[in-house]
Structure formats: structure tokens, C-alpha cells
Design a protein around this nucleic acid. Structure first.
Lengths: 336, 336
DNA sequence: CTGAAAGCGCTAACAC
DNA sequence: GTGTTAGCGCTTTCAG
């Protein structure tokens, strides 16, 4: 099937290309009869407007860039699903970029983003520093950041207040008498890790204590499980909080092997779980995190920002940062 | 930062835009001194070529569409990673499309693909019928299909011979005396499911028997686990093969509750596993599937097809279908 | 080696 | 209502 242009359609329908353009774009100042003619020509020729030419003429691409970390966590997949679902509604196309690590890499991504002239960019990344965002932000392109509250020009964000979540959780543990809470570091999710510690600290402070029990995994250590096996020989916190379920499960396995019973001897909680959690015994107490919504809301904010831009420049400032709520779900791995 | 065009660079460097274009594209017929001038102007102005305009002028977008199923399996994430990694090398950008189910949806995706004038499309989907591919194929755009051997014009494929894998496996089980092998249906991966059964059938035939033991999960049943709990009350196959590890784990849990010991009373194998498999006891015997490579090789084939197209049209036919190899890895859930 | 100019496919005033 | 025409930003002959 040869690529057919607007000219050929115009010829076939015996009208000018302007009229064809009007029909494509649903302009209402076209006589019904000619509209019909054009539509017939379009379907006869199997014409599909060239989005590239449209973008160039309109200086608008109906395209956004989505930047996610390379690691294929289920959580990320969920975000992508949510984002794409609403992107479809608004007929936006998605350029997918992944960023592994190191500033050099992100520089390249920015390069591609700018060159492709996307209308906006949505970023989900736990390890990006503020400086990187600024580099992108200089190009004056709408940005929606997922997972982290950001205050910067033309940057909005959708996030979950993990710090608050952990704060409430730890508060509850302390109140119930479990004062020896530890937090397992998540080396792949730096920002989250820090939030967990911050939340715990706040809860400890409230009770007049100081939190100082983050379990750090040495850089050289490849396996969390191996490390914990050693760790448990000399340590036995009452409660351990992990970021992802895979880590929590590593804790559970290592604890089992150390002869600790869950939740009798040791309680475990994770922040983000996956379907695999359902398969473990005991099932992990965890938070229900709206990962899909994170993506969906981000895209909604993006389209809103994009349409605002056209209409008027009123920086209303409202809805710049949306917080999504979580829900603690107690299961078999805790006593609370 | 305002968007700067090639004209401004030309003005700044006091040359014509043609020369700037030559510099950008690394043409060698530019005097060294003027090249320097232009490059300085480019970096001074922070100029980044507009890929949209380039695409239009070149009738080539250096962009491919990647179509994957909506379900966020880790396996899919891995494929995406592999594909993007090699896409980066060749400076290709990726449009990501997901397809949930139903022909209507895929029609929309095709629409977007054609409109965006991508250079090629890579598809990974287990439920797509041959007819759908043909619809796309009519547009005469290079296609690489992942996960399934395809014979069609300008369609290449990368795949793993799952049928053969299961065939060998079942053959081995039968040879070792385990003749009661069952296969759990994977409702979300239709094609794979069929391959498993085909492979098993072949092995049974070889031993002069007929395979007739696919465990079908009723449509109404939401949870495989629940179904199996019931199933095990009246059934006890010696071996069960599942497609994904999550299913195999469901089997394991249901079997445990039915009082069956793994692998003593019942052996379990899965085809595709994830990192979660490492966390279960016993660990599942499984195949090592090169998911990352599936994506990487697909993209390599794509770039090759794309460059061939330019140079010469010799349909060499070689490498149209690449088979990747697997490796059976026995672990705690089997006796072989 | 470099510049002028046509053209990629489409949109959007501006005429008629 | 519909056609004409000037771009959108870049590549690429074709001259010089």
C-alpha cells in the first residue's frame, strides 16, 4: 500500500487540499456534500494523515516522552499502563526512554527528547537528582514528575507520601510496644529509602526517641539475602520495614533460616508489593500503592497543562502537586 | 530556552543553512575552518536539530513502534529493556504501544503506527492472530515479530522454540518413568499454551501414547489457586508444567495444602521464571529464557532490515527467523 | 567547498 | 464554503 498524501485525496475528491485538511480536522465550515465526497476519497485511497507533517506545520506533536528507570519492576509497568491508557484517550503518542544511571546517560535522553519536539515529558525515577530536572526544565517544556514532590517552574508532580505512611506505621508499632524497628535500605530506590528513614525518625521523635536503625547493605554485597543471613546472627529487630516485596521476602527467608518465626519473633512490612505477595506464606503486610493511578493521573495533569498552555497562560498554580493516598493492609507478617 | 532553528545558526556562523545542514550530518565536504565556525555557533546557541522537520524532509523518522501486551509481566519489561538498549546504539526512538485485547484496539494501534510514519514496528504479543499482522503488513512496513515464528512478507521474527523445549522435557520425564504429565493452561498467553501442549503431545507420541491432560481453567474462575485447590481433591498428576512462575507457585501452594509434597509426590516445572523464583522453597525447576535478548535481537534485525532497504533490495531471505536457545535448569521442584 | 532554491505533507490565514 | 498561498525546519540537487 503506497503512502498517499493529501494532494491525491484532493484530486480524487476534486477539491483543494485545504478542504481535505478541513475535513480531517473536523472543521464545520464544509458543505455536507463535499465532506462526503472527501470522506469517500479518503477511505477509497486508505489515506492516513502524516503526523510528521502535521507536527511540523502545527509546531505541536501530540506526543509526550515518558522516562522510566531501566529496572523492570512491576511497579514501573503499572505506571506505564496507567499513563498509556489515558494517553490513548487524548490521542497522544508515547516516546519511551529508559535511564539506567549516570548523568551522561540522562544527557542523551534529554537530547532525544528535545530533538523529537515532544509536547511534554513525564518522568518517573527514584534516583534522579534535582539538578537533572533543571537541565530539562531550561528547555521550557511541561514536565510531570512521578513519585516525588517537586517545586520548580513548569514542573508538576504526582506522588505518594511514603514518609507519612511510614511515620504512621512506625508510630503504631511504637504505640503497641514494639520499639525496635529497623528499615532495610533499598539501594535501587534511593529517594524512597530516604523517605522511609525520615518517616520513621519522625515517629520516634514523637515518642521522645531517636531512630537510628537503618540496615545498610554494603556495596560489595550482591545479594540482600546473603547479607541478611549474616546480619541475623547478631541482630534481631522486632520489626523490619522494607521498600519492595522482593526484599521483604529475602528478609523472611533469612529470618526463617535464623530460626525466627514470623510474625511471632519478628514482624515484617513492605511498602510496595506485587502479585507474588499473594503467593507467600505468611503474606506480607504492605501498603496498597496506586501505581496505575500514578501513571494515569500524571498523564491527566500533562494534558491539562498542555491545553492550558494554548488557552491562556494563567499560572493558576492549583493542582501543581497531587498527592495520592495509600492504605496499610495488615496481613500475616505483622501482629498489628 | 527558545527553540533555535537552522537559520539562526546559519546567521550566527555567517554561512548558509545548507552548510549548517552539512555539518550536522557530518558531510565531509566542508572546509575545516567553516565547520569549526558552525560548530561554535551550534553550541553557543544550544541548537538541536528538529527531528520532526528532518523526518519530513528525509521521509524517514529513525523511529520504530514497539507493541507489547498491556499486562505488566516482568518478561515483557525485559524485552523492552533489550530492545531499547540496542535502539539507543543506533539512535532510534521508540514509540510504545500497548494492546489489551480485541481487534478494535489493535486497529487503533495500527492507525497510530501508520500516522506516525515509523520506519518499522516490533511486535511482542502472544494473542495476536495472523490476520492482524497481515493488516499491518499491507502497509509495507518492516515488521519484526517476537516470540512466534512468522512466515509473511517483510516480517521477520525472533523466537524461542517452546514446543521443542517442552517436548524434550516431557520426553525426559516419560523416559524416567513419570508418564502422568499435566500442563496448566495459561489463559493470558494463548500461543504459548498451545505450544506447551503441542510439545507434550509430540513427546507422548514418540512413546506411543497420546497426551490428553491439559488442565483448563474455567473462564469464570478468577484465581488459578482457588481452582487448583478444588482440582487437587480429585487429581494428582505426577508432573505439572506451567508457563509462568506465578502459576507454578499457585500450583505449589495448592498442592501443599492438599498434602502433596514437592517434588516427592508431585513435580512442578515452569517455562518462564522471574527473580521471585529465587525466593521460594523449593525453587522451581525452570527454563532460562533469554527475554532481554529477544528484545535486543529483534531490534538488531530491525536495523538490519532498515539499512538493507536503503542499500539494495536483495531479499536475501537469510536470517528472516532467528531462534534463540533456552536451557533447562533443574531445581528443587523436580526429581530430574 | 558553498549558496540558492525546490520540496517533504500539512495547516492556517487570506482571498474570492 | 472553498481555493490560494505562505510557511513549519530541514535535506538535497544543482550551480557556481
Amino acid at each position: 500500500m503506497k503512502k498517499v498524501t493529501i494532494y491525491e485525496v484532493a484530486a480524487e475528491a476534486e477539491v483543494s487540499l485545504a478542504t481535505v485538511s478541513r475535513v480531517i480536522n473536523g472543521s464545520d465550515l464544509v458543505k455536507e456534500s463535499t465532506r462526503k465526497k472527501v470522506e469517500e476519497a479518503i477511505s477509497k485511497l486508505g489515506y492516513k494523515p502524516n503526523a510528521v507533517a502535521q507536527s511540523l506545520a502545527l509546531k505541536r506533536s501530540t506526543t509526550i516522552a515518558l522516562v522510566v528507570p531501566e529496572a523492570s519492576f512491576v511497579f514501573t509497568g503499572q505506571i506505564i499502563n496507567g499513563l498509556i491508557d489515558v494517553a490513548k484517550i487524548y490521542n497522544y503518542n508515547i516516546y519511551l526512554h529508559t535511564i539506567s544511571e549516570g548523568i551522561v546517560d540522562f544527557k542523551d535522553v534529554i537530547d532525544s527528547i528535545i530533538k523529537t519536539r515532544v509536547d511534554g515529558v513525564v518522568i518517573y525515577n527514584d534516583n534522579l537528582t534535582g539538578i537533572d530536572i533543571e537541565t530539562l526544565s531550561e528547555y521550557n517544556i511541561p514536565i510531570v514528575f512521578i513519585g516525588n514532590k517537586i517545586k520548580a517552574n513548569n514542573v508538576s508532580s504526582v506522588y505518594i507520601d511514603i514518609k507519612q505512611a511510614v511515620n504512621e506505621l512506625v508510630d503504631k508499632f511504637i504505640t503497641e510496644g514494639y520499639k525496635d524497628v529497623a528499615i532495610l535500605e533499598d539501594r535501587k530506590n534511593d529517594y524512597s529509602s530516604k523517605q522511609l528513614v525520615a518517616g520513621a525518625s519522625k515517629a520516634y521523635e514523637k515518642h521522645g526517641m531517636k531512630f537510628d536503625n537503618q540496615i545498610k547493605i554494603p556495596k560489595a554485597q550482591r545479594s540482600t539475602y546473603t547479607f541478611l543471613t549474616e546480619y541475623f546472627k547478631t541482630n534481631k529487630p522486632e520489626v523490619i520495614i522494607a521498600n519492595r516485596d522482593s526484599q521483604a521476602i529475602a528478609i523472611m527467608n533469612a529470618a526463617n533460616e535464623a530460626g525466627y518465626k514470623i510474625p511471632e519473633d519478628m514482624q515484617i512490612v513492605c511498602i510496595i508489593d506485587t502479585k507474588y505477595n499473594k503467593m507467600f506464606r505468611p503474606q506480607l503486610s504492605s501498603f496498597v500503592m496506586p501505581s496505575y493511578d500514578l501513571g494515569a493521573v500524571a498523564m491527566r495533569m500533562m494534558t491539562k497543562q498542555l491545553s492550558n498552555k494554548e488557552e491562556d497562560q494563567e499560572k493558576d498554580g492549583s493542582d501543581k502537586n497531587i498527592e495520592l493516598s495509600y492504605l496499610f493492609t495488615p496481613r500475616g507478617s505483622t501482629k498489628i
